[in-house]
Design a binder for these strands. Structure first.
Length: 273
DNA sequence: CGGTAGACCTGACCGC
DNA sequence: TGCGGTCAGGTCTACC
């Protein structure tokens, strides 16, 4: 499901209802999803108050009062939503259930099981997955010059560069196509052929599309819902993604779909150079 | 190190 | 109704 805007939407939804609350219990209905879920997690977080809920790239971090953290990644099909203890009927892919006072439940559901749930103890600083996270697109330290320096030496195409989480963290298949369209840049272009001026435009495009998508509550395709069950609506604002054969919103040329690194890319061959 | 294919998993959809 | 093929919002690992 999720790229940065969807994860941000989930993190905000969780904050509204469980920030400052104490975890009563965590139930693991599976021993592993993409990786094993630590068996000790329930014992470690039981009775812990959630003092912060952060998003780092596409990860959600529940910060606990004792300094421990719960790391969550939604993979391709992961969802988190609220239920009430009295009426809850466990769904097929409900793998983890967090219980809070007054019968409030937070369900982690993930059909494809590409998601991750891990526990990071208080004194642990490094984490393999978090160490692979690059700069946040909204970071003040990410200037056009910094982006240019990261891109200019890369021989691979812009699609792969923007999908690389170590370069910029948070974009995925939808928002890479959308950002490149807004920047008028061909997804097939080599990083070595991008100018500083274009990086400035690209960075603005990335920030604009992500900001608009967050405002819309993310994009709901097949199985994404917000924590409260509402649908995000940014999918109705896609300019190229999933619009093969449809007219470009700027020039009416038919949108093309190509495959890059085994994933679909959508672009306008007239607008994007 | 950079680049790329393959792997992991379930479900929805399409054509026969 | 079933069956096979394709595709899906991610990213880690192995290999060149």
């Amino acid at each position: 499901m999720p790229e940065l805007p969807e994860v941000e939407t989930v993190a905000r939804g969780l904050s509204k209802k469980i920030l400052g609350k104490t975890i009563r219990e965590v139930t693991l209905h599976r021993a592993d999803i993409r990786f094993p879920i630590p068996k000790i997690l329930p014992a470690k977080v039981r009775g812990q108050k959630i003092i912060a809920i952060d998003r780092l790239s596409k990860y959600i971090l529940l910060r606990l009062a004792d300094g421990g953290r719960v790391l969550i990644h939604l993979g391709m099909s992961g969802r988190m939503f609220f239920e009430t203890e009295k009426t809850y009927a466990r769904g097929k892919h409900d793998h983890v259930v967090f219980s809070f006072p007054k019968g409030l439940l937070v369900i982690f559901n993930d059909a494809r099981r590409f998601g991750v749930i891990d526990y990071i103890a208080a004194k642990t600083k490094a984490h393999k997955l978090l160490d692979a996270v690059g700069m946040d697109p909204f970071s003040k330290d990410l200037t056009p010059q910094v982006l240019f320096d990261k891109i200019r030496t890369r021989k691979t195409d812009m699609k792969a560069i923007l999908m690389n989480q170590k370069i910029i963290a948070g974009l995925g298949n939808i928002y890479v196509s959308e950002a490149l369209f807004r920047a008028k840049m061909r997804p097939t272009r080599s990083g070595t052929k991008v100018t500083l001026k274009e990086c400035k435009k690209l960075l603005s495009a990335i920030r604009a599309v992500l900001t608009e998508a967050i405002k819309a509550g993310g994009s709901s395709l097949r199985d994404y819902v917000q924590t409260d069950g509402e649908l995000g609506y940014f999918q109705s604002k896609f300019r190229v993604y999933d619009r093969e054969g449809k007219p470009c919103p700027a020039c009416k040329t038919k949108i093309e779909r190509i495959t890059q690194s085994g994933r679909s890319t959508y672009f306008c061959s007239t607008c994007q150079k």
